[in-house]
């Protein structure tokens, strides 16, 4: 089991802790952490196993074995963004896919905070694409039929 150290609020080095104890200290994704073998202090978000543990700790009722949110929930909104670009002209849908790709890259790097932000943007663009696209096309259809 790796032993972790972190820099506390008063800029004091604290540790060593096991991974679980480290999380229990209330560190955030920007807290500087270090363990044997690392070349220097880095934000917790950039240490994959610490980032993943933080992520689990932040999910209510979460714990070991709970998959990261990127595995399930974002997928069904992403599908609608993809469908909007297949079944109609939706530049906004493309933007939503780009943010989703950035979110997933961030998950792969262990940057959960960044991943959440990009996911939120992706969601917003998906919703705007639907909110703009559906009424616009309906109006257009009505205008065509009445002209």
């Amino acid at each position: 089991m790796d032993q972790y150290y972190y820099v506390d609020a008063r800029n004091q080095q604290a540790g060593p802790y096991s991974l679980n104890d480290l999380i229990a200290q209330g560190i955030t994704s920007s807290t500087l952490v270090w363990k044997q073998g690392m070349s220097g202090w880095v934000p917790a978000a950039q240490v994959p196993e610490v980032a993943a543990a933080l992520q689990r700790a932040s999910v209510p009722g979460g714990g070991p074995g709970v998959p990261p949110p990127a595995a399930g929930k974002p997928a069904d909104m992403l599908v609608w963004a993809i469908l909007s670009t297949v079944f109609g002209c939706q530049p906004l849908g493309v933007v939503a896919i780009i943010f989703a790709a950035m979110s997933r890259s961030a998950v792969a790097r262990g940057e959960m905070e960044m991943a959440r932000q990009q996911f939120k943007r992706s969601l917003i663009f998906t919703i705007i694409a639907a909110a703009v696209g559906i009424p616009f096309n309906t109006l257009l259809l009505i205008a065509m039929m009445s002209s």
């Binding site: 670009t85 109609g88 002209c89 939706q90 530049p91 096309n137 259809l141 065509m144 039929m145």
Partner: peptide, 22 residues
């Protein structure tokens, strides 16, 4: 048929969008 929905991108720019032709 002129009742069929039109592509807004094509109406505005005159270019085909990547999904045009569906």
């Amino acid at each position: 048929c002129r009742f069929a929905p039109q592509c807004p991108f094509r109406l505005l720019t005159g270019w085909s969008c990547p999904a045009c032709g569906l």
